[in-house]
């Protein structure tokens, strides 16, 4: 295994005609950690990763592995392993031969083929043509390609998409293991909930722009607390809470109070002489603060 290096994005921009897919993206991804690259579909994640891997030419800016562009790496597959979203297989070729072609192209030891097939759990299916593979098996084969050169850096686009619950559990352990070995692991996803158990760091993009960068905990800190309260005289209750300086909005089953503790809202109602029929604290989850960050499009 080669050492994990830092991935550096600097002012990365890509314009397709009039559409700015990625705008001035700058951040770094450190070794020894799993970094989630998050954003709704169409946020420019795949384009960013393809620019990093030399498949798409940036309009401006750079993306490098410790200062070296992908195409200038002396042995690319042994330095960076990647699995991109699109299933890139010839359906008539066996998985083992699929991997063999790239093993030869990269000048790697051909024993790596069986080794990585076993590591991703496809050891018994290597001689089968990929056309007969399930979506989950294709994902695993994509991962086998990424691991082919035993690289210090892994770039995985939506690796959890299409896996069954058992596969999801398996990949979480694998990602953890790879990061603990000192590798740089960058995984993209459009769902925070899908990766929040695996990632240490998050980079959030929306409309091609960086909107949040930090640890998973940093996302937790931006979490807001809400209270749902109800009374027979709902209008009087809302007025009383609003008068105390809170922002309220009507719900079907009560009133939603932003940035509040249940105890405080209860005290306000009590002081106003309103009998509360329901009072509960609602914690905004990571997913909701993620959606809040990426805006309405995140709901797609």
């Amino acid at each position: 295994m080669t050492a994990g290096v830092t991935i550096e994005f600097s002012g990365l921009t890509k314009t397709f005609g009039a559409v700015q897919a990625v705008s001035d993206l700058s951040f770094t991804v450190e070794p020894g950690r799993v970094t989630g690259f998050l954003g709704p579909n169409g946020a420019g994640k795949t384009t960013t990763l393809r620019m990093l891997l030399g498949l798409v030419r940036p309009t401006s800016g750079t993306a490098t592995f410790g200062g070296t562009a992908y195409r200038d790496l002396p042995s690319p597959l042994a330095t960076v392993g990647s699995a991109l979203e699109a299933a890139s297989f010839h359906p008539g070729r066996s998985a083992a031969n699929h991997l063999l072609t790239y093993t030869q192209a990269a000048g790697l030891d051909r024993e790596r083929v069986q080794l990585v097939l076993h590591r991703v759990g496809l050891g018994a299916y290597g001689d089968r043509r990929v056309g007969g593979y399930s979506l989950g098996m294709r994902q695993r084969l994509g991962l086998a390609f990424a691991l082919l050169g035993d690289p210090g850096v892994l770039v995985l686009d939506e690796p959890i998409n299409g896996l069954d619950p058992e596969g999801i559990k398996w990949i979480r352990l694998l990602l953890r293991e790879l990061a603990d070995e000192g590798r740089t692991v960058l995984i993209s996803s459009h769902l925070l909930s899908e990766v929040q158990q695996s990632v240490d760091e998050v980079v959030i993009v929306s409309h091609g722009k960086l909107i949040h960068r930090g640890s998973l905990a940093s996302l937790d800190q931006s979490e807001q607390k809400q209270v749902i309260v109800d009374a027979t005289d709902r209008a009087a209750l809302a007025a009383a809470v609003e008068a105390a300086g809170y922002t309220v909005s009507p719900l079907r089953g009560g009133v939603l109070v932003e940035n509040a503790e249940a105890a405080d809202v209860g005290r306000i109602a009590f002081a106003a002489g309103i009998a509360v029929t329901a009072l509960s604290q609602k914690r905004v989850g990571l997913e909701e603060s993620f959606l809040h960050l990426v805006g309405e499009e995140g709901a797609l």
Binding site: L53, G54, L55, Y70, R71, L73, P76, L77, S82, L84, A86, A87, S88, F89, H90, P91, Y102, A105, A106, F145
Partner: peptide, 18 residues
Amino acid sequence: TNEFRHQTLTPTFLATPR
């Protein structure tokens, strides 16, 4: 054309960026 059709240009260019 198979490389374009089955998108195998991606792994091909990843293994040989030149």
